[in-house]
Amino acid sequence: MSESRKDQLSGLVFLAFSIFVYAASFSIKMTKADSLGPQFFPQIVSIVMGILSLVQIFSSTRKNLKEKREGKQTEKKPFAVNLPLLLSIALLLGYYYLLKPVGFIPLTIVYLFCQMYLLFPKGSFKEKKLLIISLCTSVAVPIAVYYLFYYGFQIFLPAGILG
Protein backbone atom coordinates (compact mmCIF):
# COMPACT_ATOMS: atom_id res chain seq x y z
CA MET A 1 0.00 0.00 0.00
CA SER A 2 1.38 3.43 -0.88
CA GLU A 3 1.78 6.12 1.77
CA SER A 4 -1.14 8.22 0.54
CA ARG A 5 -3.39 5.15 0.38
CA LYS A 6 -2.49 4.36 3.97
CA ASP A 7 -3.30 7.93 5.02
CA GLN A 8 -6.64 7.73 3.25
CA LEU A 9 -7.48 4.54 5.06
CA SER A 10 -6.47 5.82 8.50
CA GLY A 11 -8.46 9.01 7.86
CA LEU A 12 -11.54 6.89 7.15
CA VAL A 13 -11.00 4.90 10.33
CA PHE A 14 -10.77 8.10 12.35
CA LEU A 15 -13.92 9.45 10.68
CA ALA A 16 -15.81 6.29 11.58
CA PHE A 17 -14.47 6.48 15.12
CA SER A 18 -15.56 10.11 15.55
CA ILE A 19 -19.08 9.28 14.29
CA PHE A 20 -19.15 6.41 16.74
CA VAL A 21 -18.09 8.61 19.67
CA TYR A 22 -20.69 11.22 18.69
CA ALA A 23 -23.49 8.68 18.32
CA ALA A 24 -22.65 6.91 21.57
CA SER A 25 -22.72 10.20 23.47
CA PHE A 26 -26.52 10.22 23.19
CA SER A 27 -26.80 7.19 25.40
CA ILE A 28 -25.14 9.04 28.30
CA LYS A 29 -27.62 9.95 31.00
CA MET A 30 -28.20 13.68 31.39
CA THR A 31 -28.00 15.51 34.67
CA LYS A 32 -30.01 18.51 35.70
CA ALA A 33 -27.46 19.86 38.14
CA ASP A 34 -24.90 20.91 35.59
CA SER A 35 -26.09 22.83 32.56
CA LEU A 36 -23.52 21.38 30.18
CA GLY A 37 -23.63 17.77 31.31
CA PRO A 38 -21.44 14.78 30.58
CA GLN A 39 -22.40 14.74 26.88
CA PHE A 40 -21.02 18.15 26.09
CA PHE A 41 -17.28 17.52 25.95
CA PRO A 42 -17.35 14.18 24.07
CA GLN A 43 -19.57 15.77 21.44
CA ILE A 44 -17.23 18.71 20.90
CA VAL A 45 -14.22 16.40 20.72
CA SER A 46 -15.89 14.05 18.26
CA ILE A 47 -16.93 16.94 15.99
CA VAL A 48 -13.38 18.35 15.91
CA MET A 49 -12.01 14.85 15.30
CA GLY A 50 -14.50 14.36 12.45
CA ILE A 51 -13.41 17.62 10.79
CA LEU A 52 -9.72 16.73 11.13
CA SER A 53 -10.25 13.27 9.67
CA LEU A 54 -12.05 14.85 6.70
CA VAL A 55 -9.01 17.09 6.22
CA GLN A 56 -6.80 14.00 6.35
CA ILE A 57 -8.95 12.11 3.82
CA PHE A 58 -9.12 15.12 1.51
CA SER A 59 -5.40 15.86 1.50
CA SER A 60 -4.35 12.23 1.09
CA THR A 61 -6.85 11.71 -1.73
CA ARG A 62 -5.48 14.73 -3.55
CA LYS A 63 -1.97 13.40 -3.13
CA ASN A 64 -3.05 9.97 -4.30
CA LEU A 65 -4.70 11.34 -7.44
CA LYS A 66 -1.63 13.40 -8.21
CA GLU A 67 0.59 10.35 -7.86
CA LYS A 68 -1.71 8.41 -10.15
CA ARG A 69 -1.64 11.15 -12.77
CA GLU A 70 2.13 11.24 -12.70
CA GLY A 71 2.20 7.49 -12.97
CA LYS A 72 4.22 7.21 -9.78
CA GLN A 73 1.91 4.62 -8.34
CA THR A 74 3.96 1.63 -7.32
CA GLU A 75 2.91 -1.84 -8.36
CA LYS A 76 0.66 -3.58 -5.90
CA LYS A 77 2.57 -5.97 -3.73
CA PRO A 78 0.92 -9.29 -3.02
CA PHE A 79 -0.49 -9.29 0.48
CA ALA A 80 1.89 -11.24 2.70
CA VAL A 81 1.11 -12.67 6.11
CA ASN A 82 3.70 -11.58 8.67
CA LEU A 83 3.93 -14.74 10.70
CA PRO A 84 6.26 -13.62 13.54
CA LEU A 85 4.00 -10.61 14.13
CA LEU A 86 0.77 -12.60 14.21
CA LEU A 87 2.29 -15.27 16.44
CA SER A 88 3.56 -12.59 18.84
CA ILE A 89 0.06 -11.15 19.12
CA ALA A 90 -1.31 -14.65 19.66
CA LEU A 91 1.29 -15.21 22.40
CA LEU A 92 0.30 -12.00 24.19
CA LEU A 93 -3.41 -12.82 24.00
CA GLY A 94 -2.73 -16.37 25.12
CA TYR A 95 -0.86 -15.00 28.10
CA TYR A 96 -3.92 -12.98 29.12
CA TYR A 97 -6.30 -15.95 28.85
CA LEU A 98 -4.02 -18.49 30.54
CA LEU A 99 -2.50 -16.43 33.36
CA LYS A 100 -5.13 -17.32 35.93
CA PRO A 101 -5.37 -21.10 35.31
CA VAL A 102 -1.67 -21.73 34.55
CA GLY A 103 0.01 -19.24 36.87
CA PHE A 104 2.84 -16.75 36.52
CA ILE A 105 5.97 -18.90 36.64
CA PRO A 106 5.21 -21.66 34.11
CA LEU A 107 3.37 -19.37 31.71
CA THR A 108 6.07 -16.70 31.73
CA ILE A 109 8.77 -19.31 31.06
CA VAL A 110 6.87 -20.45 27.99
CA TYR A 111 6.14 -16.89 26.90
CA LEU A 112 9.74 -15.72 27.22
CA PHE A 113 11.19 -18.58 25.26
CA CYS A 114 8.62 -18.38 22.47
CA GLN A 115 8.95 -14.60 22.22
CA MET A 116 12.74 -14.83 22.02
CA TYR A 117 12.40 -17.42 19.29
CA LEU A 118 10.12 -15.03 17.41
CA LEU A 119 12.56 -12.13 17.73
CA PHE A 120 15.84 -13.83 16.82
CA PRO A 121 16.42 -13.98 13.07
CA LYS A 122 15.58 -17.34 11.54
CA GLY A 123 18.19 -19.99 12.20
CA SER A 124 19.80 -18.20 15.17
CA PHE A 125 19.05 -21.09 17.50
CA LYS A 126 21.31 -23.37 15.51
CA GLU A 127 24.01 -21.58 17.44
CA LYS A 128 24.17 -23.51 20.73
CA LYS A 129 25.28 -20.50 22.77
CA LEU A 130 22.25 -18.39 21.91
CA LEU A 131 19.89 -21.27 22.56
CA ILE A 132 21.36 -21.87 26.00
CA ILE A 133 21.31 -18.18 26.92
CA SER A 134 17.68 -17.92 25.86
CA LEU A 135 16.65 -21.03 27.74
CA CYS A 136 18.42 -20.03 30.94
CA THR A 137 17.00 -16.50 30.91
CA SER A 138 13.50 -17.81 30.20
CA VAL A 139 13.62 -20.09 33.23
CA ALA A 140 15.55 -17.91 35.66
CA VAL A 141 13.76 -14.58 35.18
CA PRO A 142 10.18 -15.67 36.03
CA ILE A 143 11.28 -17.58 39.12
CA ALA A 144 13.43 -14.69 40.36
CA VAL A 145 10.70 -12.14 39.67
CA TYR A 146 8.02 -14.21 41.40
CA TYR A 147 9.99 -14.61 44.60
CA LEU A 148 11.35 -11.06 44.52
CA PHE A 149 7.81 -9.72 44.48
CA TYR A 150 6.51 -12.33 46.91
CA TYR A 151 9.08 -11.80 49.63
CA GLY A 152 10.48 -8.38 48.80
CA PHE A 153 7.34 -6.42 48.03
CA GLN A 154 4.44 -8.57 49.27
CA ILE A 155 2.93 -8.51 45.80
CA PHE A 156 1.36 -11.86 44.97
CA LEU A 157 1.36 -12.91 41.36
CA PRO A 158 -1.09 -15.61 40.19
CA ALA A 159 0.28 -18.95 41.35
CA GLY A 160 -1.91 -21.15 39.08
CA ILE A 161 -1.01 -24.83 38.90
CA LEU A 162 1.90 -24.43 41.30
CA GLY A 163 -0.16 -22.73 44.00
Partner: peptide, 18 residues
Protein backbone atom coordinates in the same frame (compact mmCIF):
# COMPACT_ATOMS: atom_id res chain seq x y z
CA UNK B 1 21.21 -9.18 22.82
CA UNK B 2 18.00 -7.13 22.55
CA UNK B 3 16.20 -10.26 21.36
CA UNK B 4 16.68 -11.66 24.87
CA UNK B 5 16.12 -8.41 26.73
CA UNK B 6 12.93 -7.28 25.08
CA UNK B 7 10.86 -10.33 26.12
CA UNK B 8 12.20 -9.93 29.67
CA UNK B 9 11.02 -6.32 29.59
CA UNK B 10 7.58 -7.54 28.53
CA UNK B 11 7.56 -10.04 31.39
CA UNK B 12 8.09 -7.13 33.78
CA UNK B 13 5.37 -5.21 31.95
CA UNK B 14 2.96 -8.08 32.62
CA UNK B 15 3.86 -7.83 36.30
CA UNK B 16 3.46 -4.03 36.29
CA UNK B 17 0.09 -4.08 34.55
CA UNK B 18 -1.26 -6.86 36.70
Amino acid sequence: RTEVLLPVVIAFCFVGSY
